[in-house]
Write a protein that binds this DNA or RNA. Structure first.
Ligand SMILES: [Zn+2]
Ligand SMILES: [Zn+2]
Ligand SMILES: [Zn+2]
Ligand SMILES: [Zn+2]
Lengths: 155, 155
DNA sequence: AGCTTAATGAAAAAAGTTATCAATAAGGTC
DNA sequence: GACCTTATTGATAACTTTTTTCATTAAGCT
């Protein structure tokens, strides 16, 4: 477990340098793309999007950039409702994501104290010591709620 | 979305037949193996374990069996702490899994009402309509707690 | 500008998953 | 129990995704 420097105020460029990594082209492309996209993207999707927008980089670099950025907490893995996984930019601190089942838009919500009573219950029931958790919510985003309601009206 | 017959009292064999599927060798092997294993297993691990214990079956059948069994709710996908995923037998009804970070043993806990207040908060914050969730807890199981404590003593 | 070395890209290898189709066997009928 | 129908299987191949290798490139420092 490597200690990661990642203060809330610092930019992702600083997080990279302060941890001894270079701010290279591929890392910049990937971060900028994810920052501009609310949908979780797979390595292949990222590679294709960047290639099309004139960023010449190998897909291997996408994998490597994502691995590092994830280790530094700059990007997060999000599981789509269908079980496939993608990457989004990571909010700082303890948080989770809510994903739209319709358009796959994912946004973060703060997670402080979110599960303390549940965890207490489960620890008592199972005798496990709980130290971490994976949580995601699935639903319909405001935009899709509107779009779906409009579509309904037309029938 | 196909309607699945899966009453709590009925055995997995009945779930298969009542939904029009046959109780075939591979499906039996996979279910029996997962029932005897608390650790989530990948398709490859399942294939290797069954082959070694003298069950001649193709890995393709493992994939197909898992796909069907998951659709019927007889097995569940569990994400290991390292992000890899495996299958375990599925408990009935609304539940989640807690996974040991040391031995990967996974056991289910009931999930009724587990997140209602959190979900209310997030719906208000994000304006999403929440309809589903993914939740897993990570920790140390009773066995590993004991083993780790014993190892500690020896120092 | 020049140096050092982390980081990249291309290609190949490895790993994981899906599609195809003839052969097999599960479950029902007589 | 033998027979029939057809869902299911296994072997192969195709395909997709991820990792490894290593010579080349470029980020950051002096
Ligand atoms: Zn949406
Ligand atoms: Zn949380
Ligand atoms: Zn354990
Ligand atoms: Zn739940």
């Amino acid at each position: 477990m490597k200690k990661v420097i990642n203060k809330v105020e610092t930019s992702w460029q600083n997080v990279l340098s302060e941890n001894g990594y270079r701010v290279s082209g591929p890392r910049r492309y990937v971060m900028q793309l994810l920052e501009s996209n609310a949908q979780p993207m797979t390595p292949l999707e990222i590679y294709q999007a960047l290639s099309q927008s004139g960023r010449p980089l190998g897909i291997v670099s996408v994998y490597r950039a994502l691995e590092l950025l994830a280790e530094l907490g700059l990007v997060c893995v999000v599981y789509n409702p269908d079980g496939s996984a993608g990457y989004v930019v990571g909010a700082g601190g303890h948080h989770h994501h809510i994903v739209c089942q319709n358009c796959h838009q994912a946004i973060a919500f703060a997670g402080s104290e979110d599960l303390s009573s549940l965890i207490q219950r489960v620890e008592k029931e199972t005798k496990f010591h709980v130290s971490d958790h994976l949580l995601q919510l699935y639903g319909i985003c405001p935009d899709c709620q509107k779009a779906l309601a409009d579509a309904e009206e037309e029938n």
